[in-house]
Each structure stands twice: as structure tokens, then as C-alpha cells.
């Protein structure tokens, strides 16, 4: 079962290791990132950064489905690199969730919604689409930050 879903283009990094993992009781961190899955150095770094006791799986949305479909008691912390890969998961039958938004990729054509959170028109269209399917999106960098629901 999924106990927490977060969008974070930095994947496993300080905020996740120091603040979210201690708060969310998870057994496994499932990282959905096509590019990280193909980069052995990145996977090694994530393994090193993850505290002992957590299982780690890094894969594409497509490959993640088997892990997500099996009915196990394993508590999964789902870490998705970006909205496109969340959409891909959804197209494969991933159920609507409350999604935490941590960090998204920055470029100058995107609008800032919060520190570290940037979206362009295409991103907002995906959010709208997923909201219609029953997802909710909460911008919250850290457990101690204010929860702000994203209205797109």
C-alpha cells in the first residue's frame, strides 16, 4: 500500500531524508524516474543517502505498476520525479491520491507557486486533468510548512 505520494524532482535529498521519512512510517521508497533508473551512479547515491531499514526501488512508471498492483502490507513512500510521470502512472491505473508537491524543475518560462515549485501551462493542464479524476495536490515542502492546496 502507498502511504505517501510526493512529487519531487530532486528525488531522495535532504528534505526527504531528514524530514519526511522520519514522519511517514514507510518500509520502501519507490522512486519513479526514468532518467535515474538508467543512471547507476544516481541509484547508488540514493541507496547511500537512505537510512538503513528502507528498501529502495528506482524505476519508470511502467515498471512500477507491478509493485503498486500487488496487495502487500508493505508501506510504500512513492516519490515521483514530475507530473508527466505521475500522469503516466495514472494512465496505467494508478488510483487517485492526495499528492504532496515538494520540488519541481525550474525554468524561466514557469510560474512560481511556492519556493521550489514551478509550473507552466502544460503542467497546470495535467493538474486539472488529475484533479478531475479525484486527485488532490498539496504544496508542502516540509512537514512543518503550511499545507497549501493547489487550485489549477
Amino acid at each position: 500500500m502507498i502511504c505517501f505520494t510526493r512529487i519531487d524532482n530532486r528525488l531522495i535529498h535532504g528534505q526527504v531524508v531528514q524530514s519526511w521519512l522520519p514522519k511517514i512510517k514507510a518500509d520502501e521508497v519507490l522512486v519513479i524516474s526514468k532518467q535515474a533508473a538508467q543512471n547507476t551512479l544516481m541509484v547508488k547515491m540514493m541507496r547511500m543517502a537512505l537510512p538503513q531499514g528502507y528498501a529502495l526501488k528506482v524505476c519508470s512508471a511502467q515498471e512500477a505498476l507491478n509493485s503498486l498492483k500487488t496487495n502487500s502490507d508493505k508501506k510504500i513512500f512513492l516519490l515521483v520525479e514530475d507530473l508527466n510521470q505521475l500522469l503516466e502512472l495514472t494512465e496505467q491505473g494508478f488510483c487517485p491520491q492526495k499528492v504532496n508537491i515538494g520540488n519541481t524543475e525550474y525554468n524561466e518560462n514557469k510560474k512560481e507557486f511556492s519556493t521550489g515549485v514551478y509550473f507552466n501551462e502544460k503542467d497546470l493542464a495535467i493538474i486539472k486533468n488529475l484533479k478531475n479524476k479525484g486527485f488532490t495536490f498539496i504544496i508542502q515542502a516540509l512537514p512543518s510548512s503550511l499545507e497549501v492546496e493547489l487550485n489549477a
Binding site: 530532486r10 528525488l11 531522495i12 535529498h13 535532504g14 531524508v17 551512479l41 544516481m42 547515491m45 540514493m46 547511500m48 543517502a49 537512505l50
Partner: peptide, 16 residues
């Protein structure tokens, strides 16, 4: 500064 932080991850990518 810290293992697994974005600072560290970015620096490690540069070693490639």
C-alpha cells in the same frame, strides 16, 4: 555539507 542532499547529489553528478 550532507550526504544525499541536493548539494551532494549535484557534486557527485559532476564527477561523471
Amino acid at each position: 555539507d550532507t550526504l544525499g542532499g541536493s548539494s551532494c547529489n549535484t557534486a557527485v553528478q559532476c564527477t561523471q
